[in-house]
């Protein structure tokens, strides 16, 4: 029996693609440039632009969770902090950018904070930051993606992007995450 309007095959009836398709980098670079311009046109300050990019990145991140956990992990999610960090650094990064993120570090003075470093994020490759906006780092788009993945998998955190050794993403987890982590030990 089919309900009216429901007899069309929906996206969920189709098999999930293997995600090996490739698109020219020029194409992505130009698209991302339009994304940045769109955000810029809608904003007055650098913070505004960053917030908008962050939000857009988050929209992407939310979709990545299901996509990757179904495809790469057979539907099994991570419950350990270290594992989800490695998932982001390896699985997600490799699938999205073709390589692992360069470095993952735990902060020395704050146990809630982790750093993910990348010398040359692909989103920044063709972007030159204007002189009056030196603090703008468009990789904040990727930071939004990471944050959405962390929040969506049950590791609430704030993720920001900074100019430090290339680009450094700062992952600051909520206290509850570390508390839970300790209980599991």
């Amino acid at each position: 029996m089919s309900l009216p309007g429901r007899n069309r095959t929906s996206i969920l009836d189709k098999p999930l693609s293997r995600g090996k398709g490739e698109i020219s980098l020029s194409c992505f670079a130009l698209l991302f440039s339009e994304v940045v311009q769109y955000c810029q046109n809608k904003s007055r300050t650098v913070t505004d632009i960053q917030n908008r990019l962050h939000k857009l990145g988050a929209r992407v991140g939310v979709k990545l969770i299901d996509l990757y956990f179904v495809r790469e992990r057979g539907g099994k999610r991570e419950i350990k902090l270290l594992n989800i960090l490695l998932f982001i650094k390896s699985t997600m990064w490799k699938a999205l950018f073709g390589k692992e993120a360069d470095k993952l570090e735990h902060s020395n003075d704050d146990e809630n904070t982790y750093y993910l470093m990348e010398k040359e994020p692909v989103v920044n490759r063709y972007i030159s930051v204007p002189r009056d906006k030196t603090s703008l780092n468009c990789a904040v788009f990727v930071a939004g993606m990471i944050e959405a993945v962390l929040v969506g998998t049950g590791f609430p955190a704030k993720v920001t992007a900074h100019w430090h050794k290339g680009t450094t993403y700062m992952l600051k987890f909520d206290d509850e995450v570390l508390l839970r982590e300790k209980q599991m030990e």
Binding site: E22, I23, S24, L25, L31, L67, G98, K99
Partner: peptide, 30 residues
Amino acid sequence: RASNRFDTKKVNSELVTLTYGALVAQMVKD
């Protein structure tokens, strides 16, 4: 092989698809 599979001049198509999707969704909102 994993790194060879990815030409440096290429990106994963899902990155483009989802980025574009996010942009369109935002535009529809705005």
